[in-house]
Nucleic acid binder design. Structure first.
Length: 589
RNA sequence: GGGGGUGUAGCUCAGCUGGUAAGAGCGCUGGCCUGUCAAGCCAGAGGUCGCGGGUUCGAGCCCCGUCACUCCCGCCA
């Protein structure tokens, strides 16, 4: 909370209440709005704490009245005067300070201002590039400020909750080394080592593991992370993680600890979590929601109707089932009367997402069945379908016949899309764990195994024997925290056995020598008394974004980049001088 | 890298099928106004229609290119 200590003020603007009536106060801030009645002048003075109305009367304000007549929007001023109750009938119930006003006796202009490029108070949505170019003006807008106040409270709460649980904050390097895999690194040329580069951290992953080997036991850091990838509404090239690591824990210990911390943090946003949080395995999440970060604020679960069509004469279904695939679908309540064109657009979305096609059956509100494929179904199959989806008049059933993974993924996409289009109510903060991710995932393009999470993730103890023989079957001690369909955080238990680490790296294509070259320092650390450990990293920006009800991560970052990675305010990135290039041994085309 | 959307006054936008002199609200400037709180009333200033090229008798509008912003796919262990 802003207060008036250590300043030229006696009070902050938003704090004045009837109890201050009769007091002489000094307030300072920006001229939010001026209402000049020729005689009487009202100025709304704004500071971070809020607004207060200041009154200038030509009969009593003296020289201050002249100031009131010359000031303009966003001038910086200090007013001294008397707080009084507003006259009968002039109370403003929309303002926290609306019962009182400051009758100004003396006024000082601390700084003038040009006409701002956009109105500070305007509720009108202003072009974002302009807002970012003048972010310092944008930040003055109460509704913009709000998100940063929330961010601060959440950050402080994380610190407090973690400190209370024995975590200590340790800083890790920003200038690190580039590691293979993962996102593209931002690189920094080294002046002292010609031709060599630092990399900015994608996360403090390896350092926090080394801190565990170092006996820190419980670490956290509010860590800036850097990834040189394309931007999105919820992705910036630099972002902040609440980074956590602890030793001597089992997965359940860690999840329980995090749930307690999250509960305390969410309280700052007035959100109550029901503990323990729901847990879905990765397999279950994919099967029921077609997503590893399902939005549980609405139903529309995926239904497997393979059993209905075991003897289907419909070639598309028969072929899919014959080759080990599935027929699955969702029932979209209220889309049964959609136009052919609108449904065709869904079909196109399904094709774009990798499906061979979309089989749909519309049950119109008048009781008819519309479908380009129903003619291939027997009466029993149609009845079975209707029952499986509990389809009523007005429902639209969308089905995909394909390999299980494809069907799940496409339906997961359609499920979210239909919820949006049907404007299903999506209230609250549906928070859950998704656990037990596969250790590896197959990269079909590169024809090799990739780490699903990262190469240091610990396989299930009883799956260790499968690492080489059946990598795709190996599950891992891993967990993502999901809120409203967004991945808010994720973590794993780590490998603390150097031999297991070598075997995993080997599957990932890092042979003995390569592993030593790239990760030798980690392997050595694991062989020098590494305790079992694990951790998690939470995306602070995304969390605040969701809790603040914002649609872009940019709304919770003070000076974010545009989607081309530029800063409209400072002009970064920009060229550097020939001298600077020479210093770091770089030539630019 | 690919697809969609947007770009007209300081801000938010309208501008029909290509046709007279490019408009509104807010803001800004000046004037009037002693209880407003998005104050009110009167007057005024303010435009490279993102940029470049083309089609046309004529382009804010059509075509080509380009830039910026934005959303999505790819990418993001």
């Amino acid at each position: 909370m802003l207060d008036a200590r250590y300043s030229i003020r006696s009070h902050v603007a938003g704090s004045l209440r009837p109890e201050h009536a009769g007091q002489t106060v000094t307030v300072a801030g920006w001229v939010h709005r001026r209402r000049d009645h020729g005689g009487l002048v009202f100025i709304d003075l704004r500071d971070r704490s809020g607004l207060v109305q200041c009154v200038f009367d030509p009969d009593t304000s003296g020289p201050a009245f002249v100031v009131a007549e010359e000031v303009r929007s966003e001038w910086v001023v200090a007013f001294t005067g008397t707080v009084r109750m507003r006259p009968e009938g002039t109370v403003n119930p929309d303002l926290a300070t609306g019962q009182v006003e400051v009758v100004v006796a003396s006024a000082e202009v601390l700084n003038t201002s040009g006409t701002p490029p956009f109105e500070v108070d305007s509720a009108i949505e202003t072009d974002e590039a302009l807002r970012l170019k003048y972010r310092y003006i944008d930040l003055r807008r109460p509704e913009v400020l709000e998100a940063f106040v929330l961010r601060d409270r959440i950050t402080q709460r994380f610190r407090k909750s973690l400190e209370h649980r024995g975590f200590m904050e340790v800083e890790t390097p920003i200038l690190g080394r580039s590691t293979p895999e993962g996102a593209r690194d931002f690189i920094v040329p080294s002046r002292l080592s010609p031709g060599a580069f630092y990399a900015l951290p994608q996360s403090p992953q390896l350092f926090k593991q080394l801190l565990m080997v170092g006996g820190i036991e419980r670490y956290y850091q509010i860590a800036r992370c850097f990834r040189d990838e394309d931007l999105r509404a919820d992705r910036q090239p630099e972002f902040t993680q609440i980074d956590i690591e602890m030793s001597f824990v089992r997965q359940d210990d860690l999840l329980q600890m995090m749930e307690e911390v999250m509960d305390e943090v969410m309280h700052e946003a007035g959100v109550h979590l029901d503990l323990p949080l729901a847990r879905l395995t990765y397999a279950e999440a994919m099967d029921r929601y077609g997503s590893d970060r399902p939005d549980l604020r609405f139903g529309m679960e995926l239904t497997d109707v393979s059993g209905v069509f075991t003897a289907s004469q419909f070639k598309v279904f028969a072929d899919a089932l014959g080759s080990g695939g599935v027929v699955k679908g969702i029932a979209a309540r209220g889309a049964g009367d959609w136009s052919r064109g609108r449904i065709d657009a869904l079909n196109q979305d399904a094709l774009d997402a990798g499906a061979k096609g979309l089989a749909w059956v519309a049950f119109t509100s008048t009781g008819e069945v519309r479908s380009p494929v129903a003619k291939f179904f027997t009466a029993d199959e149609l009845a079975g379908l209707r029952e499986a989806f509990a389809a009523e008049p007005g429902d639209l059933v969308l089905m995909i016949a394909d390999a299980r993974e494809v069907a799940n993924e496409v339906l997961g996409m359609l499920r979210v899309k239909m919820a949006e289009e049907l404007e299903l109510p999506r209230e609250g903060f549906a928070t859950l764990w998704v656990v037990d991710f596969p250790l590896f995932k197959w990269d079909a393009e590169e024809k090799r195994w990739d780490a699903n999470h990262h190469p240091f993730t610990r396989p299930f103890d009883d799956h260790l024997g499968l690492i080489e023989s059946d990598p795709g079957a190996v599950l891992s001690y891993s967990y993502d925290l999901v809120m409203n369909g967004l991945e808010i955080g994720g973590g794993t238990l780590r490998i603390h056995d150097v031999e297991v680490q070598r075997r995993v790296l080997s599957v990932l294509g890092h042979g003995e020598q390569d592993a030593t070259d790239q990760f030798g320092f980690l392997l050595e650390a694991l062989s020098l008394g590494a305790p079992p450990h694990g951790g998690i990293a939470l995306g602070l920006d995304r969390l605040v974004m969701v809790l603040a009800g914002k649609h872009s991560i940019r709304d919770v970052i003070a000076f974010p980049k545009t989607s081309s990675g530029a800063c409209p305010l400072t002009g970064a990135p920009d060229t550097v001088s020939a001298r600077q290039l020479r210093d770091v041994h770089l030539k630019v085309d």
